[in-house]
Each structure stands twice: as structure tokens, then as C-alpha cells.
């Protein structure tokens, strides 16, 4: 009986915490689908707000998706080799670089954005391009990619694995392709998830870096909350939610480990 009481207590607590986190999400979604939020659900459900967001802010959604994917591409190309070198060469210099990489995360986004504007704001073509925001996002998200890949690389005996592959005749590129990349796959995927979600939701820096023509989803969302009806803001959140969930689920599915079976598959 005593155990049962404890179990019920724990269950109740868990449900309470879950509710605390989930209820706002549900309420926000409902707000975006309600005819009049202040009247409540009895005013009826509608897709009007969602459609209004779609027609008014479609561009911000596409820009955010494009931006986060471009940011992912850049951080992959820069981050994986960086992590590889940091893992391979443990010197005072590489450790210093590792520490410095965290700076853009520690420094407030507004400060970074200001520095970018002060330095490159004069380059008109660049300043008004979405690439300007991309630079900020890469600065902010690169540490996350490097860190997650580095964590995985440090956990495996990379040196010996590479020596093993080399003893079998594999040159540098073959080793990188066949041994290094597949074995830090989990880190790459964890890093990718971070980069995409962070870039997608980044507001601080983007708010300063954007121009009326390069407005991202979170900036648009702030606009909508500040100047339009609460229902539209909520509908915007709903759209955001619908955009990002499939992306995250897709990446998660990718992250499941599975060994390469190039010979085994052939030997039936």
C-alpha cells in the first residue's frame, strides 16, 4: 500500500510538470485557431488566422528554412574538419581555439550583431543580403557543431582506428570517408539538430541584422505579436511548430545508429 501511495504521488507530480509545460503549447495552438481568443472557444474555431499568417509571412518562413539549411551546410563544412583537427592534435593552441570557439555563444547576440554591422555594414550589397544574417548564424551555431562532433571523436580511439585503416592500405581521404565520418555520425547529427533549431529560432542577433526584405520567422513573429492580434501571433507559432517538427523528426530518424554492411549484404 505504501509503495502504491508513493507511485501515485510520483505519477501525479510527473503529470503536473508535464501539464505545466504542455498546457501553454496547447493554449497557444488553440488561440491560433479560435475566432476570438478573448471570448474563448465558444466563439468557434477557424483557419482564418493561419491563412492570414501564410499569406502575410510566407516569405519569412521560407527564408528561415533556407537560412537554417545554409547555416547547416556551412557549419558542416567548417565544423567537422575543425573538430577533427582539434581531436587529433592536443596542443596548447588547439585547446585555446576550443575555448575561443565558445565566445560567440557567451557574448550576447546583440553585441555580436552590432560588431558585424559596425564592421561590414558599409558593404551595401552584403548588408541587405540574407548572407549577412547567415554569417551571424554561422558564428553563433558553429561552436555547437564543433563541440558535438569533438565529443564523439574524443570518446573513440580515433588515432588507433586510423592507424588500423592505414595498415590496410587506406590513404587519408579513404580513412576520413570510411572511418572518421561514419564514426562521428552521431555527433554530426546531434550537432545538425542543434544548428538547425538554433538558426531557425535565433532572434537576438537576427533582429539587428535583418532588413525589411530579409525578415526571418522569429522576427516576423515578434512583429506579429507586437502589432497585430494575439490570434495571428498564435497562428504564427502554430505554423512554426508545423514547419519545424517534421524537420526535427526527420533528423532524429537519421541519427539511429546502423553499421555499414557492404560485404555482409552481398553474402546471402
Amino acid at each position: 500500500m505504501k509503495h502504491r501511495g508513493l507511485f501515485l504521488l510520483q505519477l501525479g507530480f510527473t503529470l503536473l510538470v508535464s501539464a505545466f509545460l504542455i498546457v501553454p503549447v496547447v493554449l497557444s495552438i488553440l488561440a491560433g485557431l479560435t475566432v476570438n481568443y478573448f471570448v474563448g472557444l465558444e466563439s468557434g474555431l477557424t483557419l482564418r488566422w493561419v491563412i492570414e499568417v501564410w499569406t502575410g509571412y510566407r516569405d519569412t518562413i521560407f527564408l528561415s528554412i533556407g537560412l537554417s539549411l545554409a547555416c547547416l551546410a556551412v557549419t558542416l563544412v567548417l565544423g567537422i574538419p575543425t573538430a577533427y583537427v582539434l581531436a587529433k592534435r592536443q596542443t596548447a593552441l588547439t585547446r585555446a581555439i576550443e575555448e575561443l570557439l565558445v565566445m560567440p555563444v557567451a557574448v550576447p547576440g546583440l553585441a555580436t550583431a552590432l560588431a558585424l554591422i559596425v564592421t561590414y555594414g558599409g558593404l551595401a550589397g552584403f548588408r541587405t543580403s540574407w548572407l549577412f544574417i547567415l554569417v551571424g548564424h554561422v558564428l553563433f551555431t558553429l561552436p555547437f557543431m564543433v563541440r558535438s562532433v569533438l565529443a564523439v571523436l574524443s570518446a573513440i580511439d580515433l588515432q588507433t582506428l586510423e592507424e588500423g585503416a592505414a595498415s590496410l592500405g587506406a590513404g587519408f581521404w579513404a580513412r576520413f570517408r570510411d572511418i572518421v565520418l561514419p564514426n562521428c555520425r552521431a555527433g554530426i547529427l546531434a550537432g545538425s539538430l542543434m544548428v538547425v533549431t538554433l538558426s531557425m529560432g535565433e532572434f537576438n542577433m537576427t533582429w539587428l541584422l535583418h532588413t525589411p526584405l530579409t525578415k526571418t520567422l522569429p522576427v516576423g513573429l515578434a512583429d506579429a505579436y507586437a502589432s497585430l492580434r494575439l490570434e495571428i501571433g498564435s497562428a504564427y507559432t502554430l505554423v512554426f511548430f508545423l514547419m519545424i517538427m517534421p524537420l526535427l523528426l526527420g533528423l532524429q530518424a537519421f541519427a539511429k545508429p546502423r553499421p555499414t554492411k557492404f560485404v555482409a549484404e552481398e553474402t546471402e
Binding site: L161, G169, A170, T260
Partner: peptide
């Protein structure tokens, strides 16, 4: 190697065949 240095991303057959594939 003392620590074997087998490739965790490949099966047993994949490991044994790797040098030949290269």
C-alpha cells in the same frame, strides 16, 4: 593492435574485407 582497432561502423565481414575493398 593491442586494442584491436576494429571499425565500429562495419560488421565483422566489413572489417575483414576493408583492406581488399581499398
Amino acid at each position: 593492435f593491442q586494442s584491436y582497432a576494429l571499425f565500429p561502423n562495419m560488421t565483422v565481414a566489413g572489417n575483414v574485407g576493408y583492406g581488399l575493398r581499398i
